[in-house]
Amino acid sequence: MKRPDIDRPSTWKPYKNNMCNGCFGGCCTMPVEIRLSDLIRLGVTDEDEAAGSIKKLAKRLIKEGILTSYRAGTEFFMLSQKANRDCYYLDSKTRLCTVYEKRPDTCRQFPSIGPRPGFCPGTSASSVLK
């Protein structure tokens, strides 16, 4: 049986409750779209700044390296990824989320939402560390 490929959702495994045990954050290497409410929860902006110019806020967060883009049409921001594709908030040594309690809704709802709802890339240590 082929190992799941994060870039090919057709290879992903059906999600089961215990799949996260021993996982090395495969889902944390995919691009993450977030909303303004996520930025507030993450503490990178506050209600006052969010009530102002969203484009100005996005420009600041892009300059700081937290975001890569903002699409006004969908009101989605794209969270930055490290050079190795890891999420901006993923600890590269522990493979744990550094903002888990404040993580974006996209992360909270995965794998119920995403490229293949109900399925997981099931990334193991060997596939992440190759």
Rank of each mutant, 00 (worst) to 15 (best):
C28R: 08
E64C: 05
F24R: 11
E49T: 15
G73V: 14
G118D: 06
L57W: 10
L96P: 00
C23Y: 11
E101C: 03
A58N: 06
S80C: 00
K16L: 08
D38W: 10
I40Y: 03
I62H: 01
Y70V: 10
I62S: 02
P14V: 14
S80A: 13
D7P: 01
M19D: 12
N84I: 09
M19I: 15
E75C: 14
I66A: 00
G52R: 14
R8G: 00
G25P: 05
S126M: 12
D105W: 14
C28G: 05
T74Y: 08
K56A: 15
A125V: 13
P14M: 12
P115M: 10
K93N: 08
K56W: 10
T94Q: 07
P115A: 12
C120A: 12
S124H: 03
P117C: 09
P121S: 09
G65E: 05
T68I: 13
V128W: 07
C87T: 02
T11E: 06
F77P: 02
T11F: 11
A50N: 04
T45R: 06
T94K: 13
R41K: 15
M30G: 04
K102S: 03
I34A: 12
Y89L: 00
L67D: 06
Y88T: 01
K93G: 06
R41F: 09
F77Q: 06
S92L: 09
D46E: 15
S126I: 15
R3Q: 13
L129P: 00
K56F: 14
E49Y: 07
M78I: 11
N17W: 08
T11V: 12
I113K: 10
L42I: 08
Y15H: 13
T29P: 00
E47A: 15
D38P: 10
N21M: 14
T68P: 00
S10T: 14
T98C: 03
Y15M: 08
F24I: 07
R35P: 04
L42Q: 02
K130I: 11
S126T: 13
G114T: 08
S37Y: 08
A51E: 08
L67P: 02
K82Q: 05
A72D: 14
P4D: 05
T11G: 10
V128Q: 07
M19P: 03
R3A: 12
D91Y: 02
Y70P: 10
C120T: 14
K130N: 11
K93W: 03
K2N: 13
Q81N: 03
L61A: 04
C107G: 01
C27N: 02
P9I: 13
E47G: 07
K63C: 04
G65R: 02
S53W: 09
A50Q: 07
W12G: 03
G114L: 06
F110P: 01
T98W: 02
D105I: 15
I62L: 05
C87R: 00
L90W: 01
F119K: 05
L39G: 06
R103N: 00
G25C: 07
S80V: 00
P31I: 04
V44E: 03
P104R: 01
L129N: 05
K16E: 12
F76P: 04
K59I: 12
A72G: 14
E33Q: 15
S69P: 01
T98Y: 00
S69C: 04
M78A: 05
S124N: 06
R108G: 04
L57I: 14
K59M: 13
M1Q: 09
V44L: 04
G65D: 02
I34N: 04
T29K: 15
P121F: 07
Q81L: 01
C97Y: 02
I113Q: 06
